[in-house]
Design a binder for these strands. Structure first.
Length: 824
RNA sequence: GCCGGGAUGGCGAAAUUGGCAAACGCAGCGGACUUAAAAUCCGCCGCCCGCGAGGGCUUGGGGGUUCGAAGCCCCCUCCCGGCACCA
């Protein structure tokens, strides 16, 4: 911890960060310095950072996520943009409801108190959030529009209700979207409990309608990592649907990515849930099949899909016919076939698919080779051959390279009506129903007469009842709230019931960026008819954690595409640029958590060192994209630096007479610093940006010691330093700006410009290598000729010994850098 | 298995993208100031050999391309993240 510091010079007051910071935070708020106007003529820049869940405390992770973007946003503002940098709270969600059950405090009260607390903590970070645009998603003025979107989606078939085997978290007592089930053990993303399957009627958003478009990242600058994860998640496969006829009349359609292997089909496997299983099962097989289907149903998905599990299946007693070869092949039921992917049926080609190979071996089925390996001599396969080759035993396709064969086989079948090109995705529709209270009520009414009836738009919002009981029943309180549940049907007026499920909170965050534009507008989600408001869009820069790659960031894109199709916006991507910061870990290198006891409380550091030091420290630890362990000792370096800036800026200008050479060098360093700091700022390289500022500070201290630059150049340099420091350390910069007699506010000043000519060096260090090894270096004028450089290099006494006695073969000159003498 | 990202001093990290490896900071060591300490300021600080001048080695490992490789190519090891009986 820092000790009391004595002033270096008697006249300069000690730097007391909390005093300075409190002073300016109050002043900025009072002046509305960061209030953003839509009609400001400057070019707009919408800088969005992911809003937090109001868990109760603003922890170090929030500081790490918010203060570097604030630094960049402040920089952009100084660059002349009208920057919108809003903040809000993702206020619906389970922790509030669990707290309600535990402590008998209403989720609304719990949430709003947390928000009030966190808002004050956030203000201590010194960010330029425009609080007048704050969005809180649990307020009816916000969630009304979730309901409105739901109705629009419903009208267009983008929201639908379906009974399905869905993922259920037994700890959270609710269903989850597929995206919220993580890892090999298929656990709940929120609480880590392994999920189970339940057959329930649930509401879905048809995100799969946009699967193809979601694969297209053209026109947006998003990290490769996110693009790869989303592409992976969507899981596009190209192939064919092929229809096999059966004994019972109804055909079976399979999806395959290998139509070129069609002549190698020796069996068929249906998922246990496949609708044809019952029809195809012969009477003598019925008992066995029923038992098998029953055991499959009882198994968890984890057990069923474990990759190392041996494939099992049971013969139905029926056969189907390969439309290409006319061959009859047996139909099995196997639990390794997933009902939810493709058509729920797989054609078995054991020679060319490893799973099918194992299945065939186990059940003694024929293994028929139809793609010949390059030098194949008829020996039996030891495993499936999955590489390229020429089609054999394939009727009219014999001799065709299999790559070509794929299209040829599809075309052949398409002509005859039993095959077609097909694309399948792993992406599933977004399950949005949650069996919990603290979320947006789904605006649907079930009427015994009229069926599913959407709540009329005029009746929105469907409000959450305030007097619900929060009991540990494992069921939503809405289900037992008669006043909420019982309604009159809006169509026929008879008794009806409301949907009691609420929406996934990811619905809230899918469009919140639009709400910041008109946070209290009551005629639409946002005022998209106002050109001044619309011109903020789309978001210019978005920042947030990578953990949302296949959850929020996919829903976020989907929503904007759907909104485009609703005519609300005229673009299809919500954010042009995305940057993901890393995760800040505990000092032990583990994820911070209360149970591990490695949580770092930012408040302690802020009261000791100040927000400015803490902001800078977080940016200095390493590249922002990397995150990493929090090492408390490193903060001293940043504290020392800001103290040096404090002293330096307030010291009187050096008294000596200016010397031309020294002044020119000062200007050169000043212009260079502006250049590199600007470049680093543009590229989110906050760590190196601060390193450059430290170097410049040290340089200025030396210059002052030398005392030969004169008052004008000195003050210009100090002014530049303060301006460059302002985005990262806004309070100390403002204080020093005032103390050095400059007009309020430094945050309304223009970012300094650099002049390439003035930044240019007069000399450079010429490196001399012999056979690529460094032997000497000396300063030479930038305009040195190649001949001169080579001559000087060869003449160097340090180089001579390495050249003498050797034959010089070549002398290379790289202008502005080096001479490399190649000897033998 | 597939996809993505990594590996550089005691530590966090830099390196104009093929041209001085280790900027900046932490820790450490030495010095100044002080009765003393803290704070502050100055200096040293990759490894090995050498009293020294100096020399050799060094970016996970091995090969290659090149006048020149931390960076490019091939092979391998390990770490982190995502996906995975997906037909």
């Amino acid at each position: 911890m820092t000790q009391t510091r004595e002033p270096v010079e008697g006249r300069i007051e000690r730097y007391v960060p909390p005093a300075v910071e409190a002073k300016w935070q109050a002043r900025w708020e009072q002046d509305g310095l960061y209030t953003v106007r839509d009609d400001d003529p400057r070019p707009k820049y919408y800088f969005l950072t992911m809003y937090p869940y109001p868990s109760g405390d603003l922890h170090i992770g929030h500081w790490y996520a918010e203060t570097p973007p604030d630094t960049k946003a402040r920089y952009l503002r100084m660059r002349g943009y009208n920057v919108l940098f809003p903040y809000g709270f993702d206020a619906f969600g389970l922790p509030a409801e669990n707290a309600a059950i535990r402590n008998q405090v209403h989720p609304f009260k719990w949430t709003m108190e947390n928000i009030a607390h966190m808002r004050e903590q956030a203000k201590r970070m010194g960010t330029m959030f425009d609080w007048s645009r704050e969005v809180i998603t649990c307020l009816p003025e916000y969630y009304k529009w979730n309901q409105w979107f739901f109705l629009q989606f419903y009208k267009r078939g983008l929201a639908y209700r379906q009974k399905a085997a869905v993922d259920w978290c037994p700890n959270c007592n609710t269903t989850l979207a597929r995206e919220q089930v993580w890892g090999e053990d298929r656990h709940c993303e929120r609480c880590g409990t392994p999920v189970i399957k339940r057959d329930l009627e649930q509401w879905f958003f048809r995100i799969t309608a946009y699967a193809e478009e979601l694969l297209d990242f053209q026109g947006i600058d998003w990290p490769e990592r996110v693009k790869a994860m989303q592409t992976n998640w969507i899981g596009r496969s190209e192939g064919a649907n092929i229809t096999f006829s059966t004994d019972v009349g109804e055909p079976i359609t399979v999806f395959t990515t290998r139509p070129d292997t069609i002549y190698g089909v020796t069996f068929m496997v249906l998922a246990p849930e496949h609708p044809l299983v019952e029809r195809l099962t012969t009477p003598e097989r019925k008992a066995e099949i029923d038992a098998y289907v029953e055991q499959a149903r009882r198994q968890t998905e984890i057990e069923r899909t474990a990759a190392d599990r041996t494939k099992t299946g049971v013969f139905t007693g029926s056969y189907c016919v390969n439309p290409y070869s006319g061959e009859r092949v047996p139909v099995y039921v196997g639990d390794y076939v997933l009902a939810t992917y493709g058509t729920g049926a797989v054609m078995g080609v054991p020679a060319h698919d490893q799973r099918d190979f194992e299945f065939a071996q186990k059940y003694g089925l024929e293994i028929k080779l139809v793609i010949a390996p390059p030098d194949y001599r008829g020996e039996p396969l030891e495993q499936a051959y999955v590489d390229e080759g020429v089609m054999v035993n394939s009727g009219p396709f014999d001799g065709t390279p299999n790559e070509e064969g794929m299209d040829a086989v599809i075309a052949y079948g398409a002509e005859r009506g039993f095959a077609s090109k097909a694309v399948t995705y792993r992406l599933r529709d977004w399950l949005v129903s949650r069996q919990r209270y603290w979320g947006t009520p789904i605006p649907i009414i079930y009427c015994p007469k009229c069926g599913t009836v959407p709540v009329p738009e005029n009746d929105l919002p469907v409000l959450l009842p305030e007097d619900a009981d929060f009991l540990p029943t494992g069921e939503s309180p809405l289900k037992y709230h008669e006043g909420f549940r019982k309604v009159k049907c809006p169509q026929c007026g008879e008794d009806a019931e409301r949907e009691t499920d609420t929406m996934d909170t990811f619905v809230d965050s899918s469009w919140y960026q639009y709400r910041y534009l008109s946070p209290h507008y009551d005629r639409a989600p946002f005022d998209y008819t106002n050109p001044a408001i619309k011109s903020w869009l789309p978001v210019t820069q978005y920042t947030g954690g990578i953990e949302h790659a296949t959850m929020h960031l996919m829903y976020f894109r989907f929503f904007t595409k759907a909104m485009r199709d609703l005519g609300l916006v005229d673009f299809g991507e919500p954010a042009l640029h995305l940057f993901n910061q890393g995760v800040i870990l505990g000092p032990d290198g583990e994820k911070m958590s209360k149970s591990r006891g490695n949580v770092v409380n930012p408040d302690d550091y802020v009261s000791t060192y100040g927000a400015d030091t803490f902001r800078c420290y977080l940016m200095f630890i390493g590249p922002w994209s990397e995150g990493g362990p929090y090492r408390p000792e490193g903060i001293e370096g940043l504290s020392r630096w800001l103290n040096r800036v404090w002293t330096l800026a307030q010291q009187p200008a050096p008294s000596g007479a200016p010397e031309e050479e020294a002044v020119r060098d000062l200007e050169r360093q000043r212009h260079r610093t502006i250049r590199v700091v600007t470049e680093d700022m543009e590229a989110f390289r906050f760590n190196t940006m601060l390193a450059r500022l430290m170097e410049f500070t040290t340089y200025l201290a030396r210059v002052r010691e030398a005392g030969n630059v004169g008052r004008m150049a000195w003050e210009r340099a100090v002014e530049t330093l303060l301006l460059l420091v302002a985005p990262a350390a806004p309070h100390i910069a403002e204080e020093l700006w005032e103390r050095t007699g400059r007009p309020y506010s430094i945050h309304q000043q223009a970012w300094p410009q650099w002049d390439e000519a003035l930044a240019a060096a007069e000399t450079f260090t010429l490196v001399v290598q012999v056979n690529g090894k460094l032997r000497d270096r000396f300063d030479v004028p930038v305009d040195i000729s190649e001949e001169q450089a080579k001559e000087m290099a060869l003449a160097s006494p340090k180089v001579q010994p390495h050249v003498q006695g050797h034959q010089v073969q070549r002398v290379l000159y790289v202008p502005g850098r080096l001479v490399n003498i190649v000897v033998r």
